[in-house]
Design a protein around this nucleic acid. Structure first.
Lengths: 338, 338
DNA sequence: CTGTCAATCCAAAACGTTTTGGTTTTTTAA
DNA sequence: TTAAAAAACCAAAACGTTTTGGATTGACAG
């Protein structure tokens, strides 16, 4: 169970541990012949410097940590993109799954990573304050914040909301509905942008036309069913805060006899894979998840290298036109085919 | 940038570092009053023991590493399940994304993790041999191997193949086709089980009825298009090595005028989320990804604790009956509706 | 022969912990 | 009051590295 250390290699090679260290880490103070002998020996003995031993001395680990609660779905795509960018910069990406903000903070304080990318709803203001004091390079993905060595990399969700409004208006719609997401950064900003742009165009969206979607298929479906049951006139243009809730919404609409997109247009957001296979295929706002992951990793590296102080970066969305949106029907409000 | 160490806390509390260490790690040799004072101070100063310092002394990191090349999709679900099981056992799960088998090996040899879960195509026999010598507790997820401190946790894909054959035969089918996956453990075993069980039932599956699917939607679609163009008679029961290729297969069939499941039944494997939303909804073999993740993590913990030597564990699949399979049509071979 | 220089090498310190084996102080028992 | 026992504390070693500041060669110039 005892693993080989630098001492073992030194003994085997008949030199001091200093020489072994120099030989293996490319130092200049060692004869070519000796270096080769040591390298061969180290390989034979499966020697690899101890992570802890090395870091203790160096105060540098060479790893960037992605802290989140889950890793499935969205997070996985993000992590894959980050990983590429980290490796290009000579860092390793570790995904550290933590249950609470306290666990994230503990891990950071234990000096395991050179930089942290944080996407964790449990990480609160209290933690942020500690993080700032600690001066550890960090990047937030779910809030707008910047300070000394802390940056944020975000979707420009406000603008995405604006674009959604512009697109639906451009199709001729005048009566709208918003399927609300959760109160995350993106959920709040998408909503804000959508409402703001509608207002600029002189369109009012009354409270009863905002449905609870919770970024969730089932929730959106139930909400829409309730709305339909209420007998209120159906608007013709619907923007859902994400694709999942858009699909739930469509499910309820078609079940009630509405045709999408002939009677009602539904615009999603995120561009999940399912959207292109669903019937009708989903028109949606495509957010660049991979781009964001890559930018976040690069920003972390830049902060570690002290290239610039903390700042805020936003990436924009583009529309993906598919089958769930169409021009507004002639009648003011949509009605089910019966 | 200098983080607080145990020395700082000791100085602030007016005690030795020994006492601080005891106070914070629940040692018994410290007065209650002193302990409280130290705890409060440590919290105030944001002190957290250095990961490297502690591990150097302990030769134990408290982390289990999941080594893979990607983390999106399938891997993410797996990792989430593992994370739960690890935390229950007092370990932390780190997902370590490595490009090559060499990188995995380096990381393991640098003694960063107490146990490794390996799911990496780049990890070859050469690495396995080193791993065995190193005696580090490890679990493979993509090959059948066991030794001193090395286990495997796998899908029982051979049995899954058998079940697929049984199910299709039970529906009355006699003419079959197999959409081949990649030459991974699961790909090979699913195929072996399917063929074996057909043979046991006296059914022959000729080579021209095995199509290349590569676990990939497009590849399967192209293969099926080519088969249709060849004019060969269409079998009525198709088993695809995974859901993606099943969907590609259905795409080609419906485009050519075949009705699924009336003319041809298509059985997938994996139970991906898309399957339930696709039209027709996909009948498939459900593999327990979360169960496997949980088992793998528990097995790793057991190996770390020396509870038993390396062994092989397999989890079974269950069928999910949906809309892409039906009883065999009366005519021997299926024909497009025209 | 002497001093300089470059090329190799190495001993020891330092990094931040935990643990071992005391030492000092306080409490208890006689 | 004193001896023994218990409680509270601490100095130093050890873990595996890297780095600092020499030490030891041998070659070469003067």
């Amino acid at each position: 169970m005892r693993r080989t250390t630098i001492k073992d290699v030194a003994k085997a090679a008949g030199v001091s541990i200093t020489t072994v260290s120099h030989a293996l880490s490319g130092g200049t103070d060692v004869k070519q012949e000796t270096r080769e002998r040591i390298e061969k020996l180290a390989a034979q003995m499966n020697y690899m410097p101890s992570f802890s031993g090395r870091n203790l001395k160096n105060a540098r680990t060479g790893v960037i940590g992605l802290y989140s609660r889950y890793i499935r779905g969205f997070y996985g795509v993000l992590a894959d993109a980050m990983c590429d960018a980290c490796q290009e910069a000579g860092f390793e990406l570790d995904v550290i799954l933590a249950e609470s903000g306290d666990m994230v903070m503990s891990s950071i304080l234990s000096k395991r990573v050179d930089g942290a990318i944080i996407l964790h709803s449990g990480f609160g203001d209290r933690h942020t304050e500690v993080l700032r004091e600690t001066e550890l390079p960090a990047v937030f993905l779910d809030r707008e914040f910047s300070a000394g060595r802390i940056s944020s990399v975000l979707f420009d969700s406000y603008k995405t909301g604006c674009q959604a409004a512009d697109y639906l208006c451009g199709l001729g719609h005048r009566e709208f509905m918003f399927i609300k997401g959760q109160d995350t950064y993106d959920g709040v900003e998408r909503r804000r942008g959508f409402y703001q742009r509608l207002r600029e165009r002189g369109i009012d969206l009354p409270p009863e036309r905002e449905l609870e979607g919770a970024f969730d298929r089932t929730t959106a479906q139930r909400s829409m069913e309730r709305f339909i049951a209420s007998g209120a006139p159906m608007p013709t243009g619907i923007f859902a805060a994400n694709d999942d809730s858009a699909i739930g919404c469509i499910l309820a609409l078609t079940a009630a006899g509405y045709r999408v997109p002939e009677d009602v247009s539904v615009l999603g957001c995120d561009n999940i894979e399912l959207g292109q296979w669903y019937t009708p295929s989903l028109t949606t706002m495509k957010t660049g998840i991979s781009t964001m992951g890559r930018l976040a990793a690069q920003e972390t590296v830049a902060l570690i290298n002290g290239e610039h102080p903390g700042r805020i970066t936003k990436t924009e969305s583009t529309i993906v036109e598919r089958g769930s949106c169409a021009g507004a029907p002639l009648s003011e409000a949509a009605a089910p085919a019966g």
